[in-house]
Amino acid sequence: MSIVGTQVIAEGGGKSGYTVEFVEQGGNVVSVSLRAQTADINRTNAIAKAKEFLGRIVENDVLPDEMVDANSASADGGQTLPLESDRHNGEDIEQQLDKGLEDTFPASDPVSATITSIPGRT
């Protein structure tokens, strides 16, 4: 296995955290999302923090053997986090869309073009 690319993506300008993507030569990608609550996270140390996180996962062998349903309790009886697709209901998405449209109001209006020309000879 050979990592041919690494990308650090700032979430919310870095205020929400960072996502680090490791790209394998075959095109497979491993993404690690580091939330802003992670101690002292910034663009320059995000890769090191992601590698540390992945190392702990492998060392402790905590990856499940099959997909875990986020709506059910975890094997140890603790709470599981909701899937990203479950976090937003339709109403929330509509509110976000409306807010986005309001923020871009002048640009969302169609351009009114007025052509003032004098017709030439026929």
Rank of each mutant, 00 (worst) to 15 (best):
residue 2 S to T: 06
residue 3 I to T: 08
residue 7 Q to F: 05
residue 9 I to A: 08
residue 12 G to T: 09
residue 16 S to V: 05
residue 16 S to K: 08
residue 20 V to T: 09
residue 22 F to H: 00
residue 22 F to R: 07
residue 25 Q to E: 13
residue 25 Q to H: 08
residue 26 G to F: 02
residue 27 G to P: 06
residue 27 G to W: 09
residue 29 V to C: 00
residue 29 V to D: 00
residue 31 S to W: 02
residue 31 S to F: 03
residue 35 R to V: 13
residue 36 A to S: 15
residue 36 A to F: 05
residue 37 Q to I: 13
residue 37 Q to E: 12
residue 38 T to K: 00
residue 38 T to Y: 04
residue 38 T to A: 05
residue 41 I to M: 03
residue 46 A to F: 08
residue 47 I to R: 07
residue 47 I to Q: 06
residue 48 A to E: 02
residue 48 A to H: 03
residue 49 K to G: 01
residue 52 E to P: 00
residue 52 E to F: 05
residue 56 R to W: 11
residue 57 I to D: 02
residue 59 E to P: 01
residue 63 L to T: 14
residue 63 L to W: 01
residue 65 D to H: 08
residue 66 E to H: 13
residue 67 M to S: 06
residue 67 M to W: 05
residue 69 D to E: 13
residue 71 N to W: 11
residue 71 N to G: 14
residue 72 S to P: 00
residue 73 A to I: 11
residue 74 S to H: 04
residue 74 S to L: 07
residue 75 A to M: 09
residue 76 D to I: 12
residue 77 G to W: 01
residue 78 G to C: 03
residue 78 G to H: 11
residue 79 Q to F: 09
residue 80 T to C: 09
residue 80 T to A: 13
residue 81 L to Y: 06
residue 82 P to Y: 10
residue 86 D to C: 04
residue 87 R to S: 10
residue 87 R to P: 00
residue 87 R to A: 12
residue 88 H to Y: 15
residue 90 G to V: 14
residue 92 D to G: 04
residue 94 E to Y: 11
residue 95 Q to V: 13
residue 95 Q to E: 06
residue 97 L to I: 15
residue 100 G to N: 13
residue 103 D to M: 06
residue 105 F to V: 13
residue 106 P to Y: 07
residue 108 S to I: 13
residue 109 D to P: 00
residue 113 A to L: 11
residue 114 T to D: 05
residue 114 T to S: 07
residue 115 I to K: 03
residue 116 T to P: 00
residue 117 S to E: 11
residue 117 S to M: 12
residue 119 P to Q: 07
residue 119 P to C: 03
residue 122 T to E: 11
